[in-house]
Amino acid sequence: MLKISDLVKEYPGGLRALDGISLTVSEPQVVAVIGSSGAGKSTLIRCINRLVEPTSGSVRLDGEELTTLSRRALRRARSHIGMIFQEYNLVERLTVMENVLSGRLGSVSLWQAFRRNYPSEDVSAAFELLDRVGLKGRHDDRADALSGGQRQRVGIARALMQKPKLLLVDEPTASLDPKTSRQIMRLIYELAHERGTPALVNIHDVALAQASADRVIALSDGTQVFDGTPEGLSPEVLNDIYGEEDWSATIRKVDDDDNGDENGDTEAPVEKSKPAPRDIVRNGAVAE
């Protein structure tokens, strides 16, 4: 399905965000991509649909090489790749329905798009998706009238309207509270499996990644440092991912989420089913 080989992205100025990533997703599974900020997670998924142009390497989706496509062919390829964002990125002044239907922009004419005159199968698919994500009856609300969790549900519906071959999901829960985060991740997991669509999910919350992914990949400084099952994330592995040498020092000095949390999250499988694992885990870590 998705085959990435030797993907490199070097930003102007010399920052090497991706340093030879190879990755194959050959079945419909949810792949969580973890790693500290700046590890290259966002760059990785944006290099797939070329919102960021990769410097070198290859990305193949269902056999088609994406990195060399012409602009027109790239637009067509993008129309088969759904994307979900941290800030939801709904067009706020448009209605929920327009936002969902915009997932079909790659397949309707400019005039149809302008007149909001979408084919009836698209409209009924949009209604069904809105029901499925739990927003029945909200189709005429303006997107900026919704709460964060509801907006992300619209974002999910928009991505799925594309009938995607692949879902790219960038920090879908980073702006949401823990409970909504869980619901959103569960929804993404269920829909990816219902529709047989593989999903690449960037995520900061290690416990949530473990709870809602089939496979976990970890990036550090633009290279892949882990690829395995959620259960395989041992404390040693997490030390590798987030930098061993700073580990103990940062825990002592900072009360901030990042490091403290992730340290605690090594024990997370036990806490998996609890609604708000972050706080429980943090208390555990403090008690240590």
């Binding site: 919102l51 915009s102 922009l105 594309q162």
Partner: peptide
């Protein structure tokens, strides 16, 4: 970025985003 990611052309981008 979100509208561009759906494969929309530039005129559609103007119209929707």
């Amino acid at each position: 970025e979100a509208v561009r990611a759906t494969g929309a052309s530039f005129p559609k981008l103007l119209l929707y985003a």
